[in-house]
Nucleic acid binder design. Structure first.
Lengths: 206, 206
DNA sequence: CGCCCCTATTGAGTAATAGTCAATAAGGGG
DNA sequence: CCCCTTATTGACTATTACTCAATAGGGGCG
């Protein structure tokens, strides 16, 4: 690929290897990213990859963290918007990210949950972050910040991930339609949470 | 473990190895199930494991298929019940399965999505089967069998899996509460599907 | 401009594990 | 009780993660 330019600065080489690893995820599962594959892709020795990432797990961790942070950053809520519009805006930018980087997104939310618990945790953190954003919006709208609400928000993110892969990558539906549908399901599930919470509290009081 | 009884019948030995592999999933991820680990657990040679499953992937495929089928069978809908009750009954038995075999369930729906696309497909089939059951109930109740409904049903199953792991394994909530909540969210999301479908059709007609 | 030292880079090695195969022996049928 | 089918194994190879002492590229100082 690159001409045999050798001895890059530490930061440049690390960035090069990381970028190559993330790009690899576009059409290959994390599991297929071996040390040798990455070394060959970039025309360096296997030992160099070990030098920068320490281990196969270290490489996977670094690559997944990079891809995950790109998603989280691309969908950071605009704090200046009122809650409901902020939710729509955030979902809209996630849809955009999925359309732009579908392979990476799919590898992240589906293909990546390898046996490695460290990698699992990294991906879960992205889901938790998105769930936290949802809960924040709902609390601003006056909903009680309960355990069930948080659990439901997390599960809704899993729901949304599945919808995104199916609709944003597999169909011709417009971004606006997908955003409207997802936001509506978030509201609908919040309603179910409120109802269950009422029943639960009633049972505990009665 | 077992006394050195040798030369079992083909079916018995295969069943023994499979059962051990499924049991392994209770507290370990699939990725950690190497040929050697299973051979040692059962006191046989590695070559014997290869003889029965052909490869590491073959072993994983067989183990996951077995665990998956146990879940699918434990939650087979009772055809004699009317739709809504059948849905509650099915969800209830899934909750029971999760409570009884939480480790296996978790390994199945979370820990297993290893890079291996064959294993991925196996687990997806369980999700698809459950989604198919949901759609069947909804169609019986008069809903149109649209693409969006099917996509949403599949995503709802992912939602339900997350809820089950959080509530059935992590909290003291009663089975009845969990079933009622999940069934309610299924109805709520169906409502969102209907609304989106109306908008979508309206846009196409207009 | 040239040398030199710091450190990025590597080749050659070990360890663990997937996968192969011909040889062995257990145990049921005749 | 023997014999033949076949379950079982030990010994081998291949691949891949991982280590480390040795090499060499190039920026900085004279």
């Amino acid at each position: 690929m690159a001409p045999p330019q050798r001895r890059l600065s530490r930061d440049d080489r690390r960035a090069q290897l990381l970028a190559s690893g993330v790009a690899f995820l576009v059409d290959q599962p994390l599991d297929a990213l071996s040390i040798e594959v990455l070394a060959d892709r970039e025309g360096v020795s296997r030992a160099l990859v070990f030098h920068y990432f320490g281990s196969r797990q270290g490489l996977h961790t670094a690559v997944v963290t990079t891809a995950r942070d790109a998603l989280i950053e691309a969908s950071t809520p605009r704090a200046d918007l009122p809650p409901l519009e902020r939710l729509d805006d955030t979902i809209g930018r996630i849809v955009g990210f999925v359309r732009a980087h579908g392979g990476t997104f799919t590898s992240l939310v589906r293909g990546i949950a390898s046996g490695d618990p460290v990698v699992r945790t990294l991906v879960d953190e992205a889901r938790d972050e998105n769930a936290r954003r949802i809960v924040e919006v709902l609390v601003e709208l006056g909903h009680a910040d309960t355990e069930l609400l948080r659990v439901a928000a997390r599960a809704w993110v899993a729901f949304a991930e599945d919808i995104l892969i199916a609709l944003a990558l597999g169909t011709e539906r417009s971004d606006a339609e997908i955003v409207a549908f997802l936001a509506d399901t978030a509201r609908a599930i919040t309603g179910s949470v409120e109802a269950a919470q009422a029943t639960h509290d009633g049972a505990r009081r009665g």
